Amino acid sequence: MISNFFSKSKPIHYIVVSLMLLLVYVVNKFKILTTDIDVIVALKQLGLFLICLLSVFVFDFLVTRNNLTKKNSYNIVLFVLFFAILPQTILNSQIVVANFFVLLALRRLISLRTQKDIKKKLFDASFWISIATLFYFWSSVFFVLVFAALLIYAITDLKNYLIPILGIATVAVILISYLIINEIDIVSFATGSFDFSLDFSALNSKPIIVGSTILLSFGLWALFYYIKNIKSQMKSYRPSFKLIIITVILGLVIIAVGPSKDGREFIFLFAPLSIIMTNYLEVISEKWFKETLLWVIILTPVAILLL
Rank of each mutant, 00 (worst) to 15 (best):
I208P: 08
F100V: 02
L307Y: 15
D36N: 13
L23A: 15
T247G: 04
V58H: 06
V210K: 00
A84C: 07
L150D: 08
I15C: 04
S201V: 07
V248D: 08
M234S: 12
I244C: 07
S9A: 12
E282Q: 11
W288C: 00
L215Y: 12
R264E: 12
S7V: 03
L22I: 04
Y178W: 13
V257D: 02
S285W: 04
F83R: 03
V39K: 11
S130P: 09
F61H: 10
I12M: 11
A98K: 04
I297L: 09
F270M: 04
Q45N: 14
Y280F: 15
Y25V: 00
Y74K: 03
L299E: 02
K206N: 03
L50T: 07
I165D: 05
F189A: 04
T191Q: 11
K71P: 02
V17A: 05
I230K: 06
Y136H: 14
D199F: 06
F147S: 05
Y237F: 13
V144S: 14
K29Y: 15
I267A: 02
T300Q: 06
L134D: 00
K235I: 14
I230F: 11
N160C: 09
T133M: 11
N279K: 12
L53S: 10
S126G: 11
N279I: 07
I276H: 10
L22Q: 00
L203R: 04
N66Y: 08
L122R: 02
D36P: 08
G167S: 12
I208S: 03
D117L: 09
